[in-house]
């Protein structure tokens, strides 16, 4: 019971720390992330971080408290020490693993269960889960297209002059001299 309570407490504190890190302005600036919109709720997150320890103290759970006070900073450090790029890379890897697992599951399922059955059913099953895989790819393509569109928009904005060109006849003598 103590072990489960401690693990839960460490998880709660670590999640609150992850929230604080995700909204931390200095961290976001350092890794060129845009600032988060909305209230960061820092006070609530700090309260949640420390809450398990207070609860353990109130209920006289000294063993759990000692493990929490050692484990929570350790896990928090491991979470915070990774850059946002790492989390993006890990997310991509995770999606890729899930996709591969889906494919493997499909193959195992087809080989072990459905092969002796009728071919048309096989075909139907084969096409069924593939839709899921394609959906992942479609989503990625859509994301990439969105990103390309956004980059094109930024490029066009940066290449276009900030002010519309002024007709030469409307410029004063000084302006022309300055231009030259």
């Amino acid at each position: 019971m103590t072990v489960i309570l401690t693990l839960a407490a460490i998880a709660i504190s670590a999640l609150a720390v992850a929230h604080l890190a995700f909204h931390d302005p200095k961290r976001r600036r350092a890794f060129s992330e845009p600032p988060r919109e909305g209230r960061p709720r820092r006070a609530e997150a700090w309260t949640l971080t420390c809450l398990p320890g207070v609860v353990f103290l109130i209920f006289d759970q000294w063993t759990a408290f000692m493990m929490w006070i050692g484990g929570a900073p350790l896990v928090s450090w491991l979470l915070v020490a990774q850059s946002p790029q790492f989390y993006r890379w890990a997310g991509m890897k995770w999606r890729s693993i899930v996709d591969r697992t889906n494919k493997l599951q499909l193959r195992a399922w087809l080989a072990g269960v459905t092969w002796p059955r009728l071919l048309p059913e096989n075909r139907r099953w084969r096409t069924g889960p593939q839709v899921t895989t394609d959906a992942g790819a479609t989503q990625r393509v859509a994301d990439l297209e969105l990103r390309v569109a956004e980059l094109e928009r930024k490029l066009s904005e940066s290449s276009s002059p900030e002010k519309p060109p002024v007709p030469l006849n409307s410029m004063t003598r000084t302006d022309r001299g300055g231009a030259r």
């Binding site: 720390v17 604080l20 890190a21 931390d24 200095k26 961290r27 350092a30 890794f31 915070v80 020490a81 990774q82 850059s83 946002p84």
Partner: peptide, 8 residues
């Protein structure tokens, strides 16, 4: 302030 800053 530096408690959440991952190594740059």
């Amino acid at each position: 302030r530096d408690l959440f800053l991952a190594p740059r």
